[in-house]
Design a protein around this nucleic acid. Structure first.
Lengths: 229, 229
DNA sequence: TTAATTAGTGTAGAATGAATACTTATTAGT
DNA sequence: ACTAATAAGTATTCATTCTACACTAATTAA
């Protein structure tokens, strides 16, 4: 029985985290100004190297926490990038993760301390290496995700209006949706609770607030559906 | 400007290939008897280590060729497995790929020389490490794929009957489909050409042979659809 | 009181999906 | 030559879902 696979090449393995958020300005992504060479000072995804004694999932969580202080964020792995010259310094394979989080809950203070910054998807700067490609793949994945799983619990405040939910979906799918059809499709998913409370900020009439029914929402997360928006 | 990221851990990175095939006995998967320790002689996916100067895609192609002689097989990356103790010998992260191929075209001779063997999905042996988990994830991916992209070109002979196509889908989805509805749904995709030729082996009456319209098929590969079977 | 703003709601027609059975072509066997 | 056996092949109805589309309601600021 062997103790090791001698003579095989070893490589650096990193994780990169794509964190989506949403607020009344639209869909955003969390970036950092890279603190070390090469490309120091350029905008970048939050990334770091895998350590010998941790899984990729753990590494992704650790890296995100390091840059933002964020805890307990569930990220989903989506692709390993391995072009030989993707990192000019040294051969590095990077496994990309993405997650959705609520901007307001996740305290601007922490993010400020850590120098991470939210950017509108549409105004994202050029990023280092192949990070722009990662983001666009993650966007594609997120778009796709809306058609099989509910989205929103992670991105909206606890109480939200139908309009906010509609605008979230429009931001993700990057297209206008018909309000009436949208509402009836969302209602047919049966994951919302209509509250006896109105948001009076956005209109004279005021619009009802909703929240997600956590249990039903989580159930739908497991047993996919098909939603055609 | 740095020349390297010193002090970061390096790890072994491998690829594992899940090759699906189909014949009149059903859906199959290609396995090898592992030729080295540990677990020598046990059944395993075809795998190998990433070299410093190749991408993961290239490594997957190289590994598959090494074990089977197969060339020009397009494989799709689907997940990186990274549990710390997944390989008992040494820390190894493995990136899994899958592909669909035509059993008949890909010459039994080569496969014999190389000791790879087809197994029915339903009679698959216990595999080493986390390979069974990889296979079941790949199956899930394949199942899912049938609802957004055409499947079959890669798995069926050039000319095939509706029944064969139906049985392929039944094998992948692991459920009975209604023949009449299946045919009309497949026809609505507009990717088949009905030939003026019958297969007389499976019935007295004989059943028409079809082939895929390569151009339309490839177009559908790019622009997903939704197919509810 | 009026004007302005956004919320909120319904329907008809079209398209798609699901469920269901009988006829046809052919050959093997008698 | 006839019959039996086998799988192929084909249509329709009903239910559901999707799409397109426009007016009324509630409220407050002026």
């Amino acid at each position: 029985m062997l103790n090791n696979y001698n003579s095989e090449d070893k490589v650096l393995l990193s994780v990169d985290c794509i964190i989506f958020g949403f607020d009344n300005e639209g869909l955003k992504i969390l970036l950092i100004k890279r603190g070390f060479e090469p490309e120091k000072g350029k905008w970048s995804l939050m990334g770091g190297f895998l350590k010998k004694d941790e899984s990729l999932n753990k590494a992704a969580i650790r890296v995100l926490n390091f840059y933002t202080g964020l805890q307990d964020i569930y990220m989903e792995q989506f692709y390993a990038y391995s072009e030989v010259d993707r990192d000019p310094v040294e051969r590095t394979i990077s496994v990309a993760y993405y997650a959705l989080i609520n901007i307001e809950n996740h305290n601007a203070e922490l993010i400020k301390n850590y120098e991470a910054q939210w950017f509108s998807i549409s105004k994202m700067p050029k990023l280092i290496f192949d990070h722009n490609e990662m983001v666009s793949h993650a966007m594609r994945r997120l778009r796709y995700r809306t058609s099989t799983k509910p989205v929103g619990f992670e991105l909206l405040p606890e109480k939200f209006t139908m309009r906010q939910l509609l605008e979230l979906y429009e931001a993700i799918l990057d297209k206008k949706l018909d309000k009436r059809n949208f509402i009836s499709k969302i209602n047919s998913l049966d994951i919302l609770v209509k509250l006896n409370e109105k948001d009076m900020l956005s209109s004279r009439k005021g619009s009802y607030l909703y929240k997600f029914d956590k249990e039903k929402y989580d159930a739908k997360l497991l047993n996919h559906f098909v939603l055609n928006l």
